[in-house]
């Protein structure tokens, strides 16, 4: 080795030293034990006939996946989950950006509102769903009151095949809109004020400034928020379980609930693991697709 630079302690930059491994060991252990092993185990499980009561009864190849296709409920949960992601992700990006633009100033009113909008993010899913069960109460809930104000009949979205999933989407957006808003606020504050001043001297209208200065400057954050939300919203579970229980007639049952019920109610671990792999693949594809889209926009 050609003279590595030596520090005062004798350790060399660029020199491999067994003791250096100690510094990354804690992280490596967590990564391997809590992430890589379960991931590998899950993939292996998805090709096995593994019952929590009966135990392991051998490899079944792709049978679990074939059974998923033929399952009367699973394809519907995939559809529900994809629809849910398609509703919520644009809402998180659009509404989060709107709130950030509206509250990006140093007024006291804005800082109070920022705290208010972020506040709901700290609530647990049980509290959030409890609040919204009350809001959705037919005849007496807030939603019914608002509908009555505009002269519409009250109805219960929770028991409607059409409205159950959108109702859960509304709950979800209300619950965690704070994170995208905060990410967008951070990005907006990175834009140099001089750019806006130059735009003002360049006769740019508010709309032109938004389109030509603001949005291009935060393009990366928009992509990040979209990917984060795609990954998060594919994992919809608690809200659906607690508000509709997946009903009515499976119209709001997400994939994770299906996995939970197959694995921990029906105790078919191999089958549940196969469904998990489908979810994993969907999330990966969607996230990659989003990244490809945003990169193509940059060129």
């Amino acid at each position: 080795m050609a003279n590595p630079i030596r520090g005062s302690g004798g350790a060399a930059i660029g020199d491999t030293h067994a003791a250096n491994l100690l510094f990354v060991l804690p992280y490596l252990v967590v990564l391997i034990v809590l992430l890589l092993v379960p991931l590998g185990l899950g993939i292996w499980l998805s090709f096995q006939d593994y019952d929590m009561l009966g135990g392991w009864s051998g490899s079944v190849g792709l049978d679990n996946f074939r059974n998923l296709l033929d399952d009367p409920i699973f394809p519907g949960t995939v559809r529900n989950t994809v629809v849910f992601v398609l509703i919520t992700t644009p809402a998180f990006v659009g509404l989060g950006l709107f709130l950030a633009l509206a509250l990006n100033d140093s007024l006291r009113r804005s800082s109070v509102l920022r705290a208010v909008f972020f506040g709901s993010s700290v609530l647990s899913v049980t509290i959030v769903t409890l609040i919204w069960r009350l809001v959705y109460l037919p005849d007496r809930g807030l939603a019914a009151d608002i509908l009555a104000l505009v002269g519409l009949h009250s109805f219960d979205p929770v028991t409607s095949e059409t409205w159950a999933l959108p109702a859960i989407a509304v709950v979800t957006v209300w619950w965690i809109i704070g994170l995208p808003m905060t990410l967008f606020l951070a990005a907006l504050q990175q834009i140099p004020a001089e750019l806006y001043e130059a735009a003002a001297l360049d006769h740019a209208s508010r709309f032109t400034t938004l389109r030509s200065i603001t949005l291009p400057s935060i393009r990366r954050t928009i992509a990040v928020v979209a990917v984060i939300e795609i990954v998060l919203q594919f994992q919809l579970f608690g809200q659906a379980l607690l508000i509709t229980g997946g009903g009515p007639n499976n119209h709001s049952r997400p994939i994770v609930q299906f996995i939970y019920e197959s694995g921990f109610r029906d105790l078919q671990l191999g089958f549940a693991a196969a469904a998990s792999q489908v979810l994993f693949a969907l999330m990966l594809l969607a996230a990659l697709g989003q990244m490809w889209l945003s990169r193509r926009g940059e060129d």
Binding site: E194, E197, A198, A200, A204
Partner: peptide, 16 residues
């Protein structure tokens, strides 16, 4: 600013 008939060169250039 845009209607004043002036153009400005900024300290940090402020190019888009």
């Amino acid at each position: 600013p845009g209607d004043r008939g002036v153009a400005m060169v900024f300290q940090h250039y402020a190019l888009y």
